[in-house]
Design a protein around this nucleic acid. Structure first.
Length: 774
DNA sequence: TTAGGGTTAG
């Protein structure tokens, strides 16, 4: 006997007690070798191989054994297993951790000539459903039909379930429709089939249909319906079910409570969710996870985290929910930190976790971190997962490395429309409109049908590359050639495209011709264009329209005040500022961050909090002095008008990205020839949120101030900052935003502000590939 | 003492 096994040898139990102890040991056995000990003991105790204890052993062995050899050998030792025994084994296996073993046993039953009866079929169908074994399911269906059991309600519900689980919801529905009598379980299984493929609306329709029959809903089906309400965010429907539960005096068990809480959390009704949550004595993982998720969606991460911290037991799902909460709420550092903690706690991530983590890296814009996560993806067997590769493309593009993005795209074993869209979007983001269009055409050549999101990327590319004619043509082709009706996002791109090209009249005509009401994004695009081209009246009109829809839109106020400031209408500027003050509207502070030696350094405007603040400011002074020698004058045009001149200059000079650049320059040469700075600009935040091309896409719009410092170039730049006024590719000073005073003045972003308007021609802009400003 | 259904992360 193996000494390492904690089980004591079974000494001389009184014969009458032995089964009890053996049963007990069988239940507490945690390994196959323990099971084998029990097996030996059973044989030594002289039990018959048809005794219940032996049958139990046979079933347990299937649960532990990773290969079927031992388990099947135990099963084979049962002399003449009858149908009843086999069915019990089937049932246990279909409920256990290795449902596919039920199919093995079924094969053995067939080969051993064991009679299959109607009780064999449901567990087989259940096992097939759990492993999505369509072929086997069809075989069982055929067998059931042959034996005349296909009208048995238990068999029918099993068939509905297995077809739905195999993605054959129409087949499932066909079986459902053919049922002469549908009980509440049949309805429920059909509803779950729809839930499984995400057709939650269909669940609610089916429930409405069921209400017209004599079938009374029970707790289980109500839980399914409540869950569907949560998925489709139908709070009214959910509340109605909640009322029904109260009226009917259903006892709220843990699962029903969980469904209700989840529904409220999904619908953003966290007060109701929390009320129910507080009433739960035993808060289970599922419901706590739902609460974390609900609060995360509302960006109440402190509450989410406190629930997370209070959980005594944590599984992959709750870790993922918390990580995802951080990742999707602009807390990428926290997301990555938690990801590390999760691994330390011994939990391995799955694809969903990885998508959140990759998304966090994308938010962070930290290339080293991104590369690390890419290596992690490769090492942990995720490298062939389509969605993960799509997310990697997006991540690399947002971290400033189109090369890496393209490498992932090229190496993918398969690509879907999201892969192409992500790559196109990446190119667009980097201002390489021509390449984006080339890829778009290649995509069509390869017969990948673009979707709505693809067009957002392509139109965005046209807009940022000044490709007005291409943009117009592609916009028209959406409906004509691809049967895709342009939505707000597409109109937003077109208004942006026309606005940037100073075709403001055409932009207005387009807005007037829209088949639906323009939203804040559309008016925001027009407003931004008016800001760039100094059209005061139209700008004021657009701002008014925007504020009608979103009275607290800080960006609109800032843009408008900038327009007035540019036109010298300071009384109007004051008026706008007064309105902002009265409404308590403040503009978001600019924030830049960069990665250095694997650490993320964050800078706010005039930030003194960095441990090396003194050196940074010294460096900044030095750079500014050098710049001034060659004629640099801080552009204070749009700075708050209530500041003194010197203060205005400070506000410009202490922009967060400038602090970051100074810090970067202090550290240049320490292992990196490149300074990447990521900004939190909010320009078109909402627009981007709705146009995300892939699951990991972020609601933030980053500005990547991407400075390429080749050793020669670095010397040149450091000794000859005068280069900033020119428009050379890779011009680090311009790229660093020295001449841009806008980044922290609000959402108006003239990304090439450094160049005087005369120099600012679209052809030159297109060449500036090293600086990606969004 | 052989058969079917419910909650969570993107």
């Amino acid at each position: 006997m193996e000494t390492a096994i904690p089980l004591k040898p079974f000494p001389s139990f009184p014969r009458s007690q032995t089964p009890h102890y053996l049963h007990h040991h069988l239940q507490s056995a945690i390994s196959l070798s323990q099971l084998k000990q029990i097996h030996a003991q059973i044989l030594r105790s002289g039990f018959d191989r048809s005794a219940p204890i032996f049958l139990k052993l046979a079933v347990s062995s299937f649960a532990f054994s990773s290969t079927s050899d031992y388990s099947l050998s135990v099963f084979r030792q049962i002399p003449d297993p009858d149908t009843g025994i086999c069915n019990r084994i089937l049932r246990q296996l279909s409920d256990g951790t290795q449902p596919h073993m039920a199919l093995h046993v079924y094969g053995r039953m067939r080969s051993a000539g064991v009679w299959i009866d109607r009780f064999s079929l449901p567990p087989l169908l259940k096992a097939s459903a759990r492993v999505s074994a369509l072929r086997e399911a069809r075989e069982v269906h055929g067998l059931a039909a042959k034996m005349g059991f296909d009208s048995d309600p238990f068999v029918q519900t099993g068939l509905i379930r297995v077809y739905a689980a195999c993605g054959r919801v129409l087949d499932a529905r066909m079986v459902f429709e053919k049922m002469p009598q549908r009980d509440v379980v049949a309805w429920n299984v059909m509803m779950d089939g729809y839930s499984y493929i995400g057709l939650h609306e269909e669940v609610l329709l089916l429930f409405d249909e069921m209400k017209g029959t004599s079938v009374e809903p029970d707790k289980v089906i109500l839980a399914s319906v409540i869950s569907a309400c949560g998925h489709v965010r139908n709070l009214d429907f959910g509340k109605a079910i909640h009322r029904y539960i109260s009226e009917k005096n259903f006892v709220l068990d843990a699962r029903l409570q969980s469904s209700l809480i989840t529904m409220y959390a999904n619908c953003g009704s966290m007060d109701s969710a929390h009320r129910l949550y507080n009433k739960m004595l035993q808060k289970n993982i599922v419901v706590s996870t739902a609460m974390i998720s609900g609060y995360s969606k509302l960006r109440k991460l402190d509450i989410a985290r406190s629930i997370f911290n209070q959980m005594t037991e944590k599984d992959l799902v709750c870790w993922s929910a918390m990580i995802s909460g951080y990742a999707e709420s602009d807390h990428p550092n926290e997301a990555l930190k938690l990801f590390n903690e999760m691994q330390i706690s011994g939990i391995r991530p799955d694809q969903i976790t990885m998508l959140s983590v990759i998304s966090a890296c994308a938010h962070l814009g930290a290339l080293d971190q991104a590369k690390w996560i890419h290596i992690y993806v490769d090492k942990n067997g995720f490298s062939n997962v389509l969605s993960i590769n799509n997310a990697l493309i997006d991540m690399y593009a947002k971290c400033g490395s189109l090369e890496n993005a393209h490498q992932v795209f090229k190496d993918m074993p398969q690509r879907n429309v999201i892969s192409w869209t992500s790559m196109i979007n990446g190119l667009a983001m980097h201002g390489d409109g021509k390449s984006a269009l080339r890829l778009f055409n290649q995509m069509k050549t390869e017969r990948i049908e673009p979707n709505e999101v693809t067009f957002v990327g392509v139109l965005y590319a046209c807009s940022h590359a000044g490709l007005v004619d291409d943009g117009r043509q592609i916009f028209t082709s959406m409906a004509n050639e691809h049967n895709i009706m342009p939505r707000h996002e597409h109109y937003g791109c077109m208004v942006d495209l026309l606005g940037r090209a100073n075709l403001l009249n055409e932009a207005v005509e387009l807005i007037e011709a829209m088949p639906f009401e323009p939203n804040v994004v559309i008016w925001g695009s027009l407003l931004a264009a008016c800001r760039v081209h100094g059209n005061v009246e139209l700008g004021a009109f657009a701002a008014k329209k925007l504020l009608e829809r979103d009275p607290n839109h800080d960006g609109a106020y800032v843009l408008l005040s900038n327009i007035y400031a540019k036109a010298g209408r300071f009384e109007d500027v004051w008026e706008v500022r007064r309105l902002m003050r009265n409404k308590g509207i403040t503009k978001e502070k600019g924030c830049s961050w960069m990665e250095m030696d694997g650490e993320i350094h964050e800078f706010l405007t005039a930030d003194q909090s960095h441990s090396k603040a003194n050196e940074i400011y010294k460096k900044l002074d030095q750079i500014v002095s050098e710049l001034k020698v060659v004629g640099y004058v801080p552009n204070v045009e749009s700075v708050l008008v209530d500041l003194e001149d010197e203060e205005k200059k400070d506000a410009v000079l202490l922009h967060s990205e400038k602090l970051a650049v100074a810090f970067g320059l202090l550290n240049v040469g320490r292992g990196s020839s490149c300074i990447r700075i990521v900004k939190n600009l909010r320009l078109w935040k909402k627009f981007i949120f709705t146009s995300s091309p892939c699951a990991s896409a972020t609601p933030l719009f980053f500005v990547l101030l991407f400075l390429q410092f080749s050793s020669v170039a670095r010397q040149q730049k450091l000794s000859r900052p005068a280069g900033y006024g020119k428009c050379n590719e890779g011009d680090a000073w311009k790229g660093a935003g020295w001449s841009s005073n806008l980044c922290e003045q609000g959402p108006v972003q003239n990304e090439r502000k450094g160049i005087s308007s005369k120099e600012e021609d679209p052809a030159k802009r297109r060449r500036e590939k090293h600086q990606t400003v969004k």
